[in-house]
Design a protein around this nucleic acid. Sequence first.
RNA 1: CGGGGCGUAGUAUACCGGUAGUACGCUUGCUUUGGGAGCAAGAAGACCGAGUCCAAUUCUCGGCGCCCCGACCA
Length: 423
Amino acid sequence: MRQSQLFTKTRREAPADEVAKNAQLLVRAGYIHKEMAGVYSYLPLGLRTLNNIVKIIREEMNAIGGQELVMTALQDKELWSRTDRWDDEKVDNWFKTSFKSGGETGLGITHEEPLTRIMTEHISSYRDLPVYAYQFQTKFRNELRAKSGIMRGKEFLMKDLYSFSKDEAEHKAFYEKAREAYVKIFNRVGLGDQTYVTFASGGIFSEFSEEFQTVSDAGEDTIYVDESKKIAINKEICTDEVIAKLGLKREKLIEKKAIEVGNIFNLGTRFSEPLGLSYTDETGVHKPVVMGSYGLGPTRLMGTIVELMADNKGLVWPESVAPFSVHLVSLGKEGDPSRRGGAEADEISKTADTLYDDLVKAGVEVLYDDRDNSVGQKFAESDLLGIPKRIVVGKKSVETGIFEVVDRATGNVVETPRAELFA
RNA sequence: CGGGGCGUAGUAUACCGGUAGUACGCUUGCUUUGGGAGCAAGAAGACCGAGUCCAAUUCUCGGCGCCCCGACCA
């Protein structure tokens, strides 16, 4: 894409109403727009980044047998009443509204209920199980206080997968696969080293749930990490009893701040029983389906990547999620060759144009800064945008066919012959 | 929800009970071009409502919005 066509602009200064690093940089770089407190729009660069994250998650969910669907945002009050999760006393962050025709509805905070009901129409025999279904959907949570930029909003994208299994053993087996899939996802987006499987409260569902916590001072959670075993315990439940149960030693645990980037809940029959999701086993006996839920927020993940990787010049994206893989920066200017320096500038511009076309033809995702701005501004903006590789087209490139390739993360510069740019 | 703070051009900010200033950005022209360029000219602003006052962007009250600390986060 030509940058002259990109409608978003960068800003030199951070917005006054943001404190979180992720929001400051994403707004400055034109990736997102704040609509209201805790409510953000994703602009072209932000959406491309988010879509890349979604794509990675989708691939890993499909790899473990997940079937993608999408459910509604509007929720059926009657359904949620059956599991006792409609009452504001029980769940306090609903956005509720009413139909003109009468009756109440709410915007989905999670989707155990609707999916369980859907499954009652499709699951009736042991032959129908197991089933793994997931979606990417905007969730709405009426948080009293949004904070931390895109990491804790009132409206946010969530991948939620639900598993439906015959029994505990089958559930457990999938649970292990889902955990492995999560590990792969965090590795692929570059957070693997700092992300820990963390034991936390199972809430109303079970003794423990598992969280994936990425160590960061921007986090809201406190966890105790055993670095050698690569697992952690959430502070909420970190008692001597729990430590012993998990086979850990208090002396080896280190306190860290962390961001919860994913979680897995054992749901048991918490939803299948009240909603009547059961199957007939081989012997003709009716049994409730055993469920699990597996959440992962792509938008929060995007914020977490910013928090961990950005530097004092701006965003830094790993190749796997970057909105473009190459930022082609032309130092030339299309123009009148008869003017002083004009011929040279025009040559540079033409060289860059041709390189852009060839890169696009080769299938490279490239953002081409073809604008007529000062060099300093172009480089500063390029740093802010955080695209992993920058190819600079200058005088030298025209004369020698050698291009400067700058690695955004390390700042390393490599003089590269044209042919190798396509490698 | 408890406590605190703040609402001034697109953005970031200053001052002031009497004509609202600066920087970036934007427009036009000329110059400039390897790290957010220079000169000149220009467009653009007081969240909403009520009150006090000769006069309110400024003071008071209410509303709305935003931020921070805490609480909450199935």
